[in-house]
């Protein structure tokens, strides 16, 4: 009886370790040459695990010196161009079939699990899209906003307008951006958001709720120049507005429950 127990235990341990061992093998069926490269063409602006792969391989060869973050920026672009130049290909900074094959061939010893540090986690199946937890910094009208500024913006949008239609949320983000440009308001994201009395969500603490993907999307759209409010710098909810003065501002339009004005 006891021996039977020991055997099952040993077997399950063996099975478990086999499973753990098998995991990376499934990702890399033939040694280290196989890759998570997809067939899509990568250009500046691309995001995803295949970009990580690209950066990892370029770093392995010494062309790329930045961090492996899965977003194809200028750093990756120059690395690709240098690689293409060195290998006698057309230098266009795009990673199509030819560049991909040449790169995989040139990086025979490349092992994504023993890389020049920090590579992709696992799941080789995921191809497109943002990997989720990372927020990139962005530029807006010549100013660059940090990744944390974007998070603050998403918090503010969610706290102020989570029950509103999506355009209404984009409009709120646009109002904050318009205020940054306006000499009557502070010129930073935190300055505008935390101005005393400016936003009710800040006053009652709702800004500290965790924002959803919709709020983050609204912020990104506003940064790309979307402004459903057409230039508003104030907005209010007519049902709850406590200030008379706000009614005297020239109004623009109503979106959802908010009236936008200048």
């Amino acid at each position: 009886m006891k021996r039977w127990k020991v055997w099952t235990a040993a077997l399950s341990v063996a099975l478990a370790s086999l499973c753990i061992y098998a995991e990376p093998i499934r990702d890399l069926p033939q040694g280290h040459d196989a890759s998570v490269f997809t067939t899509r063409t990568l250009v500046r602006g691309s995001q995803g695990i295949d970009v990580r792969e690209l950066q990892g391989r370029l770093k392995f060869l010494g062309y790329y010196k930045g961090t492996i973050d899965g977003s194809y920026g200028y750093g990756t672009y120059w690395a690709v161009r240098n690689f293409q130049n060195k290998f006698g290909m057309k230098v266009d900074g795009k990673v199509g079939a030819q560049t991909r094959t040449r790169l995989v061939r040139a990086t025979k010893g490349y092992n994504p699990y023993n890389p020049p540090k920090q590579t992709a986690g696992g799941s080789g199946s995921k191809t497109g899209g943002n990997s989720g937890n990372s927020t990139r910094a962005a530029s807006y009208g010549g100013k660059s906003l940090s990744a944390n500024d974007l998070k603050l913006l998403a918090n503010a949008v969610y706290g102020e307008a989570r029950g509103e239609p999506h355009v209404g949320q984009v409009a709120i983000a646009a109002v904050i951006m318009n205020r940054i440009d306006n000499p009557n308001f502070p010129n930073t994201v935190p300055g505008v958001i935390f101005q005393p009395g400016a936003f009710t969500a800040v006053a009652d603490g709702q800004i500290w709720l965790t924002p959803n993907e919709n709020a983050r999307k609204a912020v990104r759209e506003a940064l790309n120049g979307a402004d459903p409010s057409t230039g508003a710098i104030y907005y209010f909810n007519p049902a709850t507005a406590t200030s008379k003065w706000i009614w005297s501002r020239p109004q623009i339009k109503r979106i959802g429950r908010h009236i936008f004005c200048r």
């Binding site: 057409t230 230039g231 508003a232 501002r249 020239p250 109004q251 623009i252 339009k253 936008f260 004005c261 200048r262």
Partner: peptide
């Protein structure tokens, strides 16, 4: 279609 109010940019 809705005409925007007088606070509009244009």
């Amino acid at each position: 279609v809705k005409r925007n109010g007088k606070g509009e940019l244009y």
